[in-house]
Computed example of a mutant assay.
Amino acid sequence: MQNRLTAWGFLFPALVLLTIFVFGPIIYVAILSFTAGSFTPTGMYWVGWQNYARLLASPDFWQVLGNTLYFTVATVIPSLVIPLGLAVGLNQAMVGRTFLRTIYFLPSVASIVAAGLGFRWLFQPEGPVNALLQGVGIEPISWLGSPVWAMPVLILLSIWKQLGFNMIVFLAGLQTIPQSRYEAATLDGANAWQQFRYITLPGLGPTLVLAAITTTIFTLRSFEQVYVVTGGGPLNTTNLLVYFIYQQAFGMFDFGYAAAAATILLLATLGLVWLQLRTWQDQP
């Protein structure tokens, strides 16, 4: 009994902070999603499921949802595959490992606003990217003004930003795999691909789950890229769910509608995390 009280005593400050800054706001947003009116207790009134019905009937919302799904899938997969390959290569490197690890990690600590402005300069009509294309005989592309190419620019920026963090995570995971397993596999005649498939990947299982979950969460809450680089355009093709929530709440002052969209985003994020955990648990 004494140990239980001591444990709760240590947990109590953290639980208070979580309630005030995490659980409390989540509950408040969920309640707000069933209301309309001004953002004051006297101005709000209950509307039930009307905000959710408006969302489901809105073509703009479905377009934003599709944009978010496209952006998430196209960002998360390369953000796991590329850092994993880099981590395996760096883990076997004999010279320059620390220098290369630092270089690759720099984007993770760079300001996303500054990086966004840099990408906006790189992909402007007369920017360096189009200059390189013209140098090899390809016509310049209106990257940020094209409904086709604007989203890939945002995806490239997000992959670049996430690459170093995931690489460091995978490097840490590789250090936990006993070297004796690779030595035994080499003696048994296993080639590099077989060692990667049957030793490295299973050994990195928990690390892969962690990286997949954190990358998915970071991607779903992307806001700065859209705000700085494209502003949701052109033709709403780069508008992501978080930016859509921002527009509805602070552009249109429709807080109940924005809260409904935020609640859907929360449920979608929890569903994806649960699916990733379930997939890992079902692995033999």
Score class of each variant (00 low, 15 high):
2 Q>W: 09
7 A>T: 15
13 P>D: 01
14 A>V: 11
15 L>C: 14
16 V>Q: 05
17 L>Q: 05
18 L>D: 03
19 T>Y: 09
19 T>F: 11
21 F>K: 07
21 F>S: 10
21 F>T: 09
23 F>Y: 13
25 P>T: 01
25 P>Y: 08
25 P>A: 04
34 F>G: 06
37 G>F: 02
38 S>W: 08
38 S>P: 04
41 P>M: 15
44 M>W: 02
45 Y>K: 13
46 W>E: 09
49 W>E: 13
51 N>H: 00
53 A>Q: 13
55 L>H: 00
55 L>N: 00
56 L>F: 15
57 A>G: 15
59 P>A: 13
61 F>K: 00
65 L>V: 07
67 N>K: 05
68 T>Y: 01
69 L>R: 04
69 L>E: 03
72 T>G: 05
75 T>A: 08
75 T>P: 03
80 L>N: 04
80 L>Q: 03
80 L>S: 07
81 V>L: 15
81 V>T: 12
81 V>E: 09
83 P>V: 04
85 G>T: 07
86 L>D: 06
88 V>M: 15
91 N>Q: 10
91 N>D: 13
92 Q>K: 14
94 M>P: 07
94 M>C: 11
95 V>I: 14
97 R>D: 00
97 R>M: 06
98 T>W: 00
100 L>V: 13
103 I>W: 13
104 Y>S: 00
105 F>E: 03
111 S>N: 01
112 I>P: 07
113 V>D: 02
115 A>F: 08
116 G>I: 00
119 F>W: 15
122 L>A: 11
123 F>W: 09
125 P>H: 00
128 P>L: 13
129 V>I: 11
131 A>Y: 06
131 A>L: 10
133 L>Q: 03
137 G>Q: 10
137 G>E: 12
139 E>W: 08
140 P>C: 12
141 I>A: 04
151 M>W: 09
154 L>T: 08
155 I>S: 09
157 L>M: 15
157 L>P: 03
160 W>K: 01
161 K>F: 06
162 Q>C: 00
163 L>R: 02
166 N>C: 10
168 I>S: 06
168 I>Q: 06
172 A>I: 02
172 A>P: 00
177 I>C: 13
178 P>S: 13
181 R>Y: 15
185 A>C: 12
191 N>Q: 10
191 N>F: 10
192 A>C: 10
193 W>C: 08
193 W>A: 14
195 Q>D: 11
199 I>S: 06
199 I>Q: 07
202 P>I: 05
204 L>W: 03
205 G>R: 15
209 V>W: 00
210 L>Y: 12
216 T>Y: 05
221 R>P: 02
222 S>W: 02
224 E>T: 09
225 Q>W: 05
226 V>E: 03
229 V>T: 10
229 V>R: 08
231 G>D: 05
232 G>H: 05
236 N>D: 12
240 L>W: 02
241 L>C: 03
241 L>P: 00
242 V>H: 00
242 V>Q: 01
244 F>R: 01
245 I>G: 03
247 Q>M: 06
248 Q>T: 08
249 A>C: 10
249 A>F: 03
250 F>K: 11
250 F>Y: 15
251 G>P: 07
253 F>K: 14
254 D>G: 07
254 D>N: 11
255 F>R: 00
258 A>I: 07
265 L>A: 14
265 L>D: 08
269 T>E: 08
270 L>D: 09
273 V>A: 08
274 W>L: 13
274 W>E: 07
274 W>V: 13
274 W>T: 09
275 L>T: 14
275 L>E: 03
278 R>H: 14
279 T>I: 15
280 W>S: 14
283 Q>R: 15
